[in-house]
Amino acid sequence: MTYLPATSRRAALVTGASRGIGRAIALRLAADGFDVAIGYAGNAARAEETVAAARAAGAHAIAVQGDVAQAPDVARLFDAAQQAFGRLDVVVNSAGIMTLNPVAPAGVEAFDQTIATNLRGAFLVLGEAAARLGQGGRIIALSTSVIARAFPGYGPYIAAKAGVEGLVRVLANELRGRGITVNAVAPGPVATDLFFDGKSEEQVAQLAKLAPLERLGTPDDIAGAVAFLAGPDGAWVNAQVLRANGGYA
């Protein structure tokens, strides 16, 4: 189905939106009145499910496949969103992977893969957003609250996400005078497939108890924080990292 540009509505591009936190963000933005482009890496069926749910919420929505670590793919994501909606107001980079490896030479391939997706991908998406968005635009990246915990095995993931937080602050300054905000949301443990992968029930239970609220976050918890930054009430928040973690760190 082809939609004509909906110039009276705002439009958002969300990467990594076929499942988990990215999906929740896309659907929350759809409910808040945004048309949404669903960026995904490989699972077309899951992406189309997100598109269908966004349309059910009243949004125009499309799915666009692309690897955020590849500059041509990132450009194509943005081209597709702007062609479909005639505008682009909000960009959320939620695409990411998490592998657990010690800081050791044997883990360098996993390190390189994590850096490519989580940090290089953020660099490309944020940079493309900076080139495309106009006055009042919002750029939001996903970081992680595990940075403050420094758990063994999280070295590659923490290194990449710490880099993302640095990029957010630098880009906010580079966009001085253009009326575009750049922020990050740093979730604590959130009940997603990415979080559960490779963890035992005992480990999950321990992590759930770390925050004073004594539960795992939900994708909707994080989507609410992103929606705040993307909406009118977040207009004066810039170059910040919002740690949505229940007091975890």
Rank of each mutant, 00 (worst) to 15 (best):
127 G>I: 04
7 T>F: 11
106 A>W: 00
229 L>K: 01
125 V>C: 09
8 S>L: 12
156 P>S: 10
143 S>E: 05
53 A>C: 07
12 A>C: 07
158 I>K: 02
100 L>M: 14
20 G>Y: 00
162 A>E: 11
17 A>P: 01
186 A>C: 10
13 L>H: 09
121 G>T: 01
158 I>S: 01
190 V>S: 00
59 A>M: 10
72 P>T: 13
248 Y>N: 04
17 A>Y: 00
111 F>T: 10
140 I>G: 03
208 A>P: 03
60 H>M: 12
208 A>K: 11
107 G>A: 12
149 R>N: 09
164 V>Y: 03
116 A>E: 05
168 V>W: 11
10 R>S: 07
10 R>F: 09
13 L>E: 09
93 N>R: 07
168 V>G: 13
62 I>T: 11
111 F>C: 08
155 G>Y: 02
199 K>R: 15
226 V>L: 07
160 A>K: 03
64 V>S: 13
34 F>G: 02
19 R>P: 03
174 E>S: 04
3 Y>Q: 07
166 G>H: 12
238 N>V: 13
115 I>Y: 01
122 A>G: 10
9 R>G: 06
76 R>A: 15
89 D>C: 01
148 A>H: 11
153 G>P: 02
71 A>R: 15
201 E>N: 10
18 S>Y: 06
6 A>Q: 12
184 A>D: 01
132 R>T: 09
123 F>N: 07
176 R>S: 14
104 A>D: 14
91 V>I: 05
248 Y>H: 14
171 L>I: 06
63 A>P: 09
244 A>W: 05
79 D>M: 06
161 K>N: 12
86 G>S: 06
118 N>M: 04
3 Y>L: 11
135 Q>M: 03
14 V>W: 05
197 D>Q: 15
68 V>I: 14
79 D>W: 03
4 L>Q: 14
95 A>V: 02
140 I>F: 08
214 E>I: 03
113 Q>E: 14
56 A>L: 09
33 G>I: 04
115 I>M: 14
216 L>D: 06
153 G>R: 00
